[in-house]
């Protein structure tokens, strides 16, 4: 049993999860209104993972994510204004509007995307870890990916390389049970992901991704070990996405009942209940948080709305580094 957080810590965790939830709900609405386009992959139901796990990282550690990364960006500290502006494609966005929902970048916060080729960023994480190791830096590179990525060759190649060279890389697998419409059991011969990971000779643990406290505790332990020079590690967060894979998804592959069952484990109310039971937080705390988040959100939407479109004359900007610019 993991130790429960104190009040300040708990307020932080709750606030982050609520920020993600409300932000994404608003994104779904804005998508329907045509303000956000392209693919929109929502993280709703999975908030505890980014919220808990990212607390284990220091500001110098690097972070790589998939296209389902709005939560990671917000928790990491990328201002909501900039994230929302990016969703709109405005040049005030964190990737100057070029990336959109799937490609949130913020080098200052060491967020290296927003990567939309499944498993394509795993080798990058290996290389970043290699660079840090060679330069003698004590940084950790955390790479988040869905369980769907485990079927790709790049996952296996990356795991092997990282383990072979004892690189400071955290392989953070967000197992929400489905890769688009394909359930884990339909895509993996071995569904125990830690068994696969362990075969590469690295520590591999599995944690309940609906429990933000467990996520944070387990992640911290494993990140500390990596930072201490223990080489790479794998962590599986068992979670569930409550919504469709992206906005276009008839969800023919799962029952409503199954979704409803998982909704009962919604990480936000369950955390709040535990904290109230422990007398750490109150309902009023939540109300207060909601109010603050609503304010932040409406400001972010206003900021994005007021944002500007990059001039077409600049279309070919940033294809190459402009020397001296």
């Amino acid at each position: 049993m993991t130790a429960l957080p104190g009040r300040g810590h708990a307020l932080h965790l709750l606030t982050q999860m609520v920020r993600i939830r409300r932000f994404e709900e608003r994104c779904a609405e804005l998508y329907s209104a045509g303000k956000i386009r392209g693919f929109l992959h929502l993280y709703i139901g999975e908030e505890a993972v980014a919220t808990g796990a990212l607390r284990a990282l220091g500001p110098d550690d690097a972070l790589l994510c998939t296209y389902r990364e709005h939560g990671h960006a917000l928790v990491r500290g990328v201002p909501m204004n900039k994230v929302m502006a990016e969703m709109f494609g405005k040049q005030e966005g964190c990737s100057r509007g070029r990336g959109g929902s799937m490609h949130l970048f913020d080098a200052e916060h060491r967020l290296y995307g927003g990567n939309a080729i499944v498993a394509g960023h795993l080798p990058l994480a290996v290389g970043m870890g290699l660079g840090d190791q060679m330069a003698g830096r004590q940084r950790v590179t955390a790479c988040f990916f869905g369980e769907g990525a485990i079927a790709e060759g790049e996952f296996h190649e990356s795991m092997n390389l990282a383990a072979l060279w004892k690189l400071p890389v955290l392989f953070a697998c967000e197992n929400n049970g489905y890769a688009m419409g394909t359930a884990l059991a339909r895509s993996e011969s071995q569904t125990a992901l830690t068994v696969k990971a362990a075969s590469y000779g690295m520590p591999a643990v599995s944690v309940d991704g609906m429990d933000v406290v467990a996520v944070e505790t387990e992640t911290r332990a494993i990140v500390d070990a990596i930072r201490a020079g223990g080489g790479p590690a794998f962590i599986e967060y068992k979670t569930y996405r409550f919504r469709a894979h992206s906005m276009f998804d008839a969800e023919l592959y799962r029952d409503k009942a199954e979704v409803d069952e998982h909704r009962k484990r919604d990480p936000i109310p369950s955390f709040l209940r535990r904290m109230i039971a422990a007398n750490t937080l109150t309902e009023e705390d939540l109300a207060h948080i909601e109010a603050k988040v609503a304010e932040e959100l409406s400001e972010a939407v206003a900021f994005a709305e007021a944002g500007t479109w990059e001039p077409i004359e600049e279309l070919t900007r940033d294809v190459y580094t402009e020397v001296g610019a």
Binding site: R37, G89, G97, R98, L315, T316, V319
Partner: peptide, 11 residues
């Protein structure tokens, strides 16, 4: 055009 295709519709 010689550019990775950007997200916003006008670009």
């Amino acid at each position: 055009v010689e550019v990775p295709i950007p997200y916003p519709t006008h670009l």
